[in-house]
C-alpha cells in the first residue's frame, strides 16, 4: 500500500543487480567455466545464471536420444556387435545397413561393415532397445551439424566405435552425468 510494495519490489531487483557482480568477483579471473554450470543451477544459486553456450554446456541428461554410437566390450577389447542384423530390420526408416564379416574374431561374429545414416535417422531408439548385446547406444552429442546432406552424416563402423570410445569409456552407458559433460 502507498507504494511500499513498489519499494519492496525494487529492492529485490537491486539485490539481484548487486549479486551478479558479487558472483563475478567470487569467480574472479574467469567468469565461467565448464563446471560452472553446476554452481549456478538450482534455486539457491545467486548471481547471473546465464549459460554462456559455446564455453559452457548444459549437461545432457542420460536418456537423451542422440546419434547412435557403438560400444566396446572391455573384456575382449572388441565391439559388442554380433552382426545379427536386428537393428537393420527394426529400423523404421532404413537408416542402418550391416553386413557380417566372413571370419569370426575371438569366437564372435563381428560386423564387416556398418553404415548408420544420420540423414534419415529419426532417433526413435528402436535399434537400441532391440540390440541383444547392448552394442548400440545413444551418444550425448547435441551439435551434429553438416554443411550438406549426404556423406558427411553417414557414419561407418570405425566412426561409431570411436564415438563409443569417447562418450562411453569402458563400454558402459549411461555413464555418470558429470563424466559425460567433462568428456
Amino acid at each position: 500500500m502507498l507504494g511500499l510494495g513498489l519499494l519492496k519490489g525494487m529492492s529485490v531487483t537491486l539485490r539481484r543487480f548487486v549479486e551478479t557482480y558479487v558472483g563475478d568477483l567470487r569467480r574472479f579471473p574467469r567468469r565461467y567455466s565448464r563446471g560452472g554450470v553446476y554452481e549456478r543451477m538450482g534455486i539457491t544459486a545467486r548471481g547471473a545464471f546465464t549459460i554462456q553456450y559455446p564455453e559452457e554446456r548444459v549437461p545432457m541428461f542420460p536418456r537423451y536420444r542422440g546419434p547412435l554410437m557403438m560400444l566396446t566390450d572391455p573384456a575382449k577389447d572388441l565391439t559388442r556387435c554380433i552382426a545379427c542384423g536386428l537393428c537393420e530390420r527394426t529400423c523404421p526408416t532404413g537408416s542402418i545397413k550391416v553386413t557380417r564379416a566372413e571370419e569370426k574374431v575371438q569366437d564372435q561374429n563381428v560386423p564387416g561393415s556398418y553404415e548408420y545414416d544420420m540423414n534419415t535417422c529419426m532417433f526413435c531408439g528402436f535399434c537400441v532397445q532391440i540390440c541383444p548385446t547392448g552394442a548400440l547406444a545413444h551418444s550425448p552429442l547435441l551439435e551434429v551439424g553438416a554443411y550438406s546432406k549426404g556423406e558427411a552424416l553417414i557414419l561407418n563402423l570405425g566412426q561409431m566405435l570411436e564415438m563409443g570410445r569417447i562418450h562411453a569409456p569402458g563400454g558402459v552407458w549411461p555413464v555418470e552425468e558429470k563424466e559425460a559433460v567433462a568428456s
Binding site: 531487483t13 537491486l14 539481484r16 543487480f17 551478479t20 557482480y21 547471473a48 545464471f49 546465464t50 554462456q52
Partner: peptide
C-alpha cells in the same frame, strides 16, 4: 548491460 544485471543475466557480451 544494466537491465541484464537486474534480471540475473549478463547483457550482450
Amino acid at each position: 548491460k544494466i537491465i541484464g544485471r537486474f534480471q540475473d543475466r549478463y547483457g550482450p557480451n
